[in-house]
Structure formats: structure tokens, C-alpha cells
């Protein structure tokens, strides 16, 4: 991870050096920065909330051995959707950045997020207005209450500084291609 950061820093440096020489390049580089941010390929930080979701306490004796939150992974999906609705700007689940093509799906024994298998406890981080997000989630009969009805253990923490990692996969489209802008 550190190595990647170092490499990217060097790339940024080359870009900056060059852009100082040329006015046109300066525009391109600053645009690039903006679109990279919007694509979710930069580590970001800011105020927000951290939600921890864990399965009910294990009971002694015979249990079916299923994880509630994994079987009901659509709860996670709608939790993320509610966060977006509350104006979250960046969201991650267990270190997986949520981008527009992120899926949350039950696959065999795991819940796949960004094709990476994950397991409880789920730590969901969101950057945005902490008060808005918190109250959107904890509204009566809201998503958190729904989840608590399943026996899930949930805690919400507001923080002034949350760090959310970049999307770690390689973004390469095989089917979609840009449409040139007609002038």
C-alpha cells in the first residue's frame, strides 16, 4: 500500500512539474484530479459516521450456523442506499469502497462486495454530514430498527475524521466506450 502511494506521489510530481510549464497541461491535471475523486480511486477523509453490524451473540447449544447478516445481505444494500440518500459522499464496507458498479451479493458462504468475499462484523464507513446520516439511519421504524429486529448488534459512531480507502480493483471497461462530444 505504501509502495503504491509512493509511486502515485511520484506520478503526481511529474504531472505537477510539467503542468507548471504549460498552461494547457495545468487545466488537464486539475480536471484529472477532479474526475479521479469522482471515480473513487483516491483515498479520502472527512467527517462522517461509522456503523458496525455484527451477528447476534452466539448461543450455546445447537444453532443452524447461519449468519443473519449474510443471509440478509439486502439489508446491507439498503443501509448503503439510505446513507447515499442522506448525502454520503464516500462509503466503504470492510475497506471496500462503494462505487457505482459495486455489488453486494451472497455467494456461497460469503457476501461478495466488489467481488471480494467479506464476513461479519461489517464496518460501514460513510463521509458526509454526520448528524444527517445518523438520524436518517436511526429514524423510528428505519433501517437500523429493522436490522435490530433480526437480533443484529449495531453501533453507530459519529466522528470528525474518517478515512475511506480507494477502490482497489482495476477499473477497465470492456463493453462501454465514451461517446465523443459533438460540437
Amino acid at each position: 500500500m505504501d509502495e503504491l502511494n509512493r509511486l502515485e506521489e511520484r506520478m503526481d510530481k511529474i504531472e505537477k512539474e510539467k503542468s507548471d510549464e504549460d498552461f494547457f497541461l495545468k487545466g488537464v491535471v486539475s480536471d484529472l484530479e477532479k474526475y479521479k475523486m469522482a471515480s473513487g480511486v483516491v483515498d479520502v477523509m472527512g467527517p462522517g459516521v461509522t456503523v458496525t453490524v455484527d451477528d447476534p451473540l452466539p448461543t450455546q447449544g445447537i444453532t443452524d450456523g447461519y449468519s443473519v447478516i449474510m443471509l440478509r445481505s439486502d439489508l446491507l444494500l439498503s443501509l448503503v442506499n439510505k446513507m447515499k440518500d442522506a448525502g454520503a459522499e464516500a462509503i466503504s464496507i470492510n475497506g471496500q469502497r462503494i462505487i457505482s458498479t459495486t455489488e453486494i451479493s451472497l455467494a456461497g458462504d460469503n457476501v461478495n462486495i466488489n467481488t471480494v468475499p467479506t464476513a461479519p462484523p461489517y464496518i460501514i464507513k460513510a463521509i458526509g454530514n454526520p448528524d444527517t446520516i445518523e438520524s436518517t439511519l436511526t429514524i423510528r421504524f428505519g433501517i437500523i430498527e429493522q436490522m435490530k429486529n433480526y437480533g443484529l448488534r449495531i453501533s453507530i459512531k459519529k466522528a470528525d475524521r474518517i478515512e475511506i480507502p480507494r477502490y482497489s480493483g482495476i477499473l477497465k471497461y470492456r463493453y462501454a466506450e465514451p461517446v465523443p462530444v459533438k460540437e
Partner: peptide
């Protein structure tokens, strides 16, 4: 720039 514009949804896409 074009690549990231496509990914971030700032260009129309076809396929």
C-alpha cells in the same frame, strides 16, 4: 482524463 471521465460518469457511454 477521458478514461476517468467515463468511469466517473461525465461522458456519455455506448456499447
Amino acid at each position: 482524463l477521458d478514461h476517468y471521465k467515463l468511469i466517473s460518469g461525465n461522458t456519455a457511454a455506448r456499447g
